[in-house]
Nucleic acid binder design. Structure first.
Lengths: 262, 262
DNA sequence: CGATTCCTTGAGGCATCTCAAGGCAAGTGG
DNA sequence: CCACTTGCCTTGAGATGCCTCAAGGAATCG
């Protein structure tokens, strides 16, 4: 496939080959069926009919545990599967040749990872567990076969990829035109919403990522993240104790976020 | 479709409904076949077999002209087609409720636009012609039908979407961890590479976008873009005359870009 | 020819970064 | 159990890169 039409600047931005670390991944014998999974309304089968979901069951996705700090896949690894988070939190990140890291996302239960690998057949980013986690591996070739049988499945996958594009749009907006307070507010509100969707408290939660990781994601230094947390606390918007966050004033936070709520 | 699992923060970041401007789009009667298109190796059919490409011919994509400054589609418009640039250059951009704009990409011949609309059925960004342009409209529903008949076509579309994700990754890298000179150098090198792929000079070209648009794309103010151009010129890397650019020292520019070439 | 748009350049300000020091909690080894 | 290390976070002080504001030039257009 000629790459002439590529839209990306990935080949302009040289990406460092990340040394492959031995995987601390258990070879779990467990398999999972989508139709009985408690995440089915958040995950791949979301929007699929019952028969289509049952068709997915045929794949019996392999489950794997990934220990905190370990990579699920690394930048440059051969792309074979996409992954759904079953439990825990991941970060995905890119590394430049000179070692600069950019966290490009945080992923929680029901969310898919690895879609960036389809383009070139190699993962364009690394996925690293921020706590002890469990994932479903979804072999891409196999998924494609199934998709030939079901237009709906095809469309669901397309929609998920498109959603990833939209998600990155928002992050670009954030990185391109917001100040530190707006960025952190956007981050917290987004986290809150996703936790709520998973049945957790939207107003009180534990951050799985360090200040440095938040900073990288939001395009600011860890000290600035820390100062901004302190500022929010002084403004009475949050209670912060290390990684434990309590949102006290959601409206205020939304205002700090800087966008008129239409 | 429940949106609970959505990865994006688009719904945290409220997007301004852009007022729909009357389209200055000619209702061209022209139709185009992929198999005879001079862009076929850059565009959708890239990587497809001859029979698959001929299958695309069945769609007879409608061609349309879009005049400079006019939108091809606007944020919030109903999503029905994706678009391939046939001629000219587009920018795509997002607008926040408070009016801040973020340019999220520039698109030239053979590149696809509108993939972000698949997720929600509405375009998540606007596409605006930077000069007089011509596009192929690719009705998405129709494309999906064809894809059920051809696994290859399915995979090509998936690959194009994935590539868009990767492209945005790089932009995030850029916005998150590069300084002004690195950003502009990355931008110019990327442009150069894409022009070269289209048979144009990689070292001398005319920018279709304003300093403000470049600035928005790169997350900096137009004055900073201008100053950085001047700095590059003083360093002997470029010759700049308004929008006419000549790259004098590609290696130097690559170094300014800040990344060891592996 | 004036109006407009776009670009360049300067001067000063400020948000964020850099560098540095110290606190706290958890882990480790004696 | 304590001393020490380590990782992570907070806070301060000073530096700086980019932004803001402002003025003026060049090209385009009606």
């Amino acid at each position: 496939m000629s790459n002439a039409a590529t839209l990306d600047i990935a080949r302009t931005i040289r990406i460092a080959p990340v040394p492959s670390v031995p995987r601390a991944v258990s070879v779990a014998p467990l398999k999972t069926q989508c139709s009985t999974c408690h995440l089915r309304d958040l995950c791949l089968p979301c929007g699929l009919s019952v028969p289509d979901t049952e068709r997915l069951d045929g794949m019996m996705f392999a489950r794997r545990k990934v220990a905190a700090g370990q990579p699920l896949y690394s930048q440059g690894d051969k792309f074979q599967s996409i992954y759904a988070v079953r439990m825990g939190t991941f970060k995905s990140s890119l590394t430049l040749a000179d070692g600069r890291e950019q966290v490009s996302g945080f992923h929680m239960a029901g969310e898919l990872m690895g879609l960036d690998g389809i383009a070139s057949g190699a993962h364009a980013s690394s996925a690293i567990a921020l706590e002890d986690t469990e994932i479903c591996a979804i072999p891409y070739a196999h998924l494609n076969e199934l998709a030939t049988q079901s237009t709906n499945l095809q469309m669901v996958v397309a929609r998920l990829m498109s959603r990833e594009i939209v998600r990155e749009h928002s992050l670009m907006m954030l990185l391109g035109s917001m100040n530190a307070e707006e960025r952190l507010a956007a981050f917290l509100l987004n986290l809150s919403r996703r936790l709520k969707a998973r049945g957790y408290s939207p107003s009180e939660f534990h951050l799985r990522m360090s200040r440095a990781e938040i900073g990288s994601y939001l395009g600011m230094k860890l000290e600035t993240v820390s100062r901004t947390f302190s500022a929010f606390q002084q403004q009475g918007l949050l209670e912060v104790d290390k990684r434990h966050i309590r949102i006290l004033d959601l409206d205020g936070l939304t205002r700090a976020f800087g966008l008129r709520v239409q």
